[in-house]
Design a protein around this nucleic acid. Structure first.
Lengths: 341, 341
DNA sequence: ATTTAGCACTCGCTTCTGTTGAGTGCTAAC
DNA sequence: GTTAGCACTCAACAGAAGCGAGTGCTAAAT
C-alpha cells in the first residue's frame, strides 16, 4: 500500500512529466513549493516507487519517468475530479457553429474538432449501417445483366451495390421480390434480412415467384454484406509533432497502423459504455506500444452505436482529454438523437 | 546548344543520382567503362553544365546533383525509348488477379498496385459522378420533414443526400415531380439537370403541379451539387522511406498536403491526355517543391474522366514510372470500358 | 586546341577526447 | 525519519584531428 506522500509524489511527478516530457529528478520535485522534503528524502521515495513498478529510469543516473503501470495507476486513482469540466462549453460551442444536417458530417466535424483541440489523432467509428433498419429497398437495372441494389435505412443512410442479374431470372419475379421485401421486411435490421427471409419468407416466395430456386441464389448474393462501419479521422499527422515520435522509424509503423482499416476498427471498437483508457501494450499491438487510446461511446436511443477515440503518446494529458471526450461524446449523442426529431 | 558529350554526361549523372541518391563527382563518372575521359576533363564539362543551370552543388567541394531544370531536360530529351515497356505485362497481370466488379474497387486496387510497385505515393482521381448521366432518381421519405433523394447514374453510381421537405409541399406534387424528372431527364448529366429544368421543364411543371413556386425552391435545394470526385490512395506513408524525406520537418508538410482534399484535387487534376510530368516547383505549391508528380489520364468511351498519379521525390525513377503509369492507365481504361459491355 | 596530370584547397563526416551538469545511491550524522 | 555530503554514472555537448571525396586552376602533354 502506498503512503500519502508516495501518492502525492507519484502524481506530481507524472503531471510534471506529462507537461515537460523530460525525466523528473529529486531536485526538481523538492524545489516545488508544495513539497517540503529534501532531495535525498525524495530519492528514497522514488527508489521505492521504482521498486513497486510505477516508475522507470532511462539510464542509471537519469531522473524517473512513469512506467505503463504508473500511468495506469495515475489514470485509475490519481486523476482528481475530472468531470467538472470547463471544456463542455467549448466543445458544444465549436460543434454548434457548424450546423450539421447529416450524421456523416457530424462525425467528421467531431473528429476534426477533437484533434484540433488536443493535437493528437482522433478517430470516429461510425455506426454500422447494417444495424440500421430497412426503410426501403429497390433494384434498378443498368443493363440486361447488371443492376444496382439500393437499401435505404431508417436513419437516412443509403447502402448500394452493383449486382449481376442471372439472365435466367424473370423480370416479373424480380419486381415481385422487391415488393415482398419492402412489405414484409421494413423495419428489420439489414444484417438480419437474410435470416428473416430464411425463417419467414421462403413459403411466400415459393408461392408468388415462378422460379424460386434462381431467386434464392440471387438473394444470397444480394444480401451478403461486408462490414460497413466508416472511420472518420482528424489530425492524422499530429503524431509527428509529439516529441516521443520525433524519430521516423518510430512514427512510420504508427502512421501505417492508422491507415490499416482492420486494425483501426479493432483498436477503436468498444462494447463498454462511457470513457475507457487503454495504455501502451494494453492495446495489443506492437505499433501502439507507446500510445494510449481514449475511447468514448456515443449512443442513439440509449443504444451504443459507435465510438469517438483519441490516440496519443502514453504521456497524454489524460485529465483534459478524458473530460473533453466525455463531453464531446455526450454532445454527439445529443445531436444524433435530435436528428430523428 | 549542348554537345553530344555533355548530353551523355548529363544523362549518366542523373541516372546515377537517381539510383544512389548521392552527389556524383568527376571521379565516379570517369571510372565508368563507357566514359574514357579523365576526371579533369569531366570536371570542366560539369562546370559548364552547372553554368547552364542543369546541375547544382550541395556545397563547394561536393559532387553535382541535378537541378530542377536538369530533371526537366532529362525527362524531355534524355529518356530513351520509354514506351517499350516490360512492365505492361506485369501490371495487367496484377490487376487481373483481382477480378473487379465495381469501378471504385478498380481505382482502389490500381492505386495500391502502383504504390506497391514503385514505393511512391499514388492517387487515383475518380470520375466526377456529376458528369454521369441520370438513369433513375427517387425520393424516399424518412419522416414528415426529412427525405432521402437518390440518383442512380448510367454507370451504376449512386448519389444520395438527405433533404428537408418544406411542409408546404404537396405529396402528390412530389410524386409527379419525380415522375416527370425520370421521364424527361433520363440520360442527362447530373450537373446539367438544373439548367435543363430551367430551360425545358418550367412549363411542364407549371401545368402539372399545384404549387410550382414551392417546388421550385425545393428543386434548387435538391440539385445543388458539391464536388464529387473521389480520391483513392496507395502508399500514403511511402514518402517516409525516401531518403530525401528522412527529416521530419520535411515530411510533415508533405503528409499534410496529401490529406488536404482541395490541394490534392488540384494537384492531380489534368485536362491533358496521356502522361504528364510536373517537377518540383512546377507543382505550384511549397510542400511539393521537392516532389515530382506523374499524371496519367484514363478514359471512357474516349473521354477523359479521371487520372492516376504518382507522387515521389524529384529524384524519381522516371523511366520505370512513366511506362508503368502509361500501361496502367491504359489497362484501367480497358477495364472501365468493359464494365459497360 | 583539347586533354590530362598535379596540386592546393574545401568541406562534410566520423572518431576521439574532455567537460559539464543533472541525476543517482549510500552512509553517517542530525 | 530526515537530511547533508560524497563518490559515482551517464547523456549531451563542444572542440580537435584525421579522412576522403570532391573541387578549381595551372601547366604540361597530345
Amino acid at each position: 500500500m502506498l503512503t500519502e506522500r508516495q501518492l502525492y509524489i507519484l502524481r506530481v511527478l507524472i503531471d510534471d512529466y506529462i507537461k515537460h516530457v523530460e525525466p523528473v529528478g529529486s531536485r526538481t520535485l523538492s524545489k516545488r513549493e508544495d513539497i517540503t522534503y529534501s532531495p535525498a528524502t525524495i530519492r528514497n521515495e522514488l527508489a521505492d516507487l521504482e521498486d513497486l513498478g510505477f516508475l522507470e529510469k532511462t539510464h542509471t543516473s537519469s531522473g524517473r519517468i512513469p512506467s505503463e503501470k504508473g500511468y495506469r495507476f495515475y489514470v485509475d486513482h490519481l486523476l482528481p475530479s475530472i468531470f467538472v469540466s470547463p471544456n463542455e462549453m467549448e466543445t458544444t460551442e465549436l460543434l454548434s457553429t457548424a450546423k450539421v444536417q447529416e450524421a456523416e458530417v457530424l462525425f467528421d466535424q467531431s473528429a476534426k474538432i477533437l484533434s484540433d483541440l488536443t493535437n493528437y489523432t482522433s478517430v470516429v467509428l461510425g455506426p454500422n449501417a447494417l444495424d440500421m433498419k430497412l426503410r426501403h429497398m429497390q433494384i434498378i437495372p443498368l443493363s440486361s445483366q447488371m443492376a444496382v441494389a439500393i437499401f435505404v435505412t431508417n436513419t437516412g443512410h443509403v447502402e448500394n451495390r452493383q449486382i449481376v442479374l442471372p439472365n435466367s431470372i424473370e423480370p416479373s419475379d424480380l419486381e415481385k421480390l422487391v415488393n415482398i421485401l419492402n412489405e414484409r421486411l421494413a423495419g428489420v435490421r439489414l444484417v438480419e434480412l437474410n435470416s428473416r427471409i430464411q425463417m419467414e419468407l421462403t413459403a411466400v416466395f415459393k408461392k408468388h415467384l415462378k422460379d424460386y430456386q434462381n431467386v434464392s441464389v440471387f438473394l444470397d448474393q444480394l444480401l451478403l454484406w461486408s462490414k460497413k462501419e466508416k472511420l472518420f479521422y482528424g489530425g492524422k499527422t499530429n503524431m509527428l509533432s509529439q516529441p516521443e515520435f520525433r524519430d521516423l522509424d518510430k512514427v512510420r509503423p504508427l502512421l501505417d497502423f492508422l491507415e490499416t482499416r482492420d486494425l483501426m476498427e479493432k483498436l477503436v471498437s468498444s462494447t463498454e459504455e462511457g470513457v475507457t483508457v487503454k495504455i501502451g501494450t494494453e492495446n495489443q499491438h506492437e505499433a501502439m506500444k507507446d500510445c494510449s487510446v481514449i475511447n468514448a461511446s456515443y449512443t442513439m436511443h440509449g443504444k451504443h452505436i459507435g465510438t469517438i477515440s483519441l490516440i496519443g503518446p502514453t504521456r497524454m494529458e489524460y485529465r483534459k482529454v478524458i473530460s473533453l471526450l466525455d463531453s464531446l461524446s455526450k454532445e454527439m449523442t445529443n445531436r444524433l438523437n435530435n436528428f430523428s426529431e
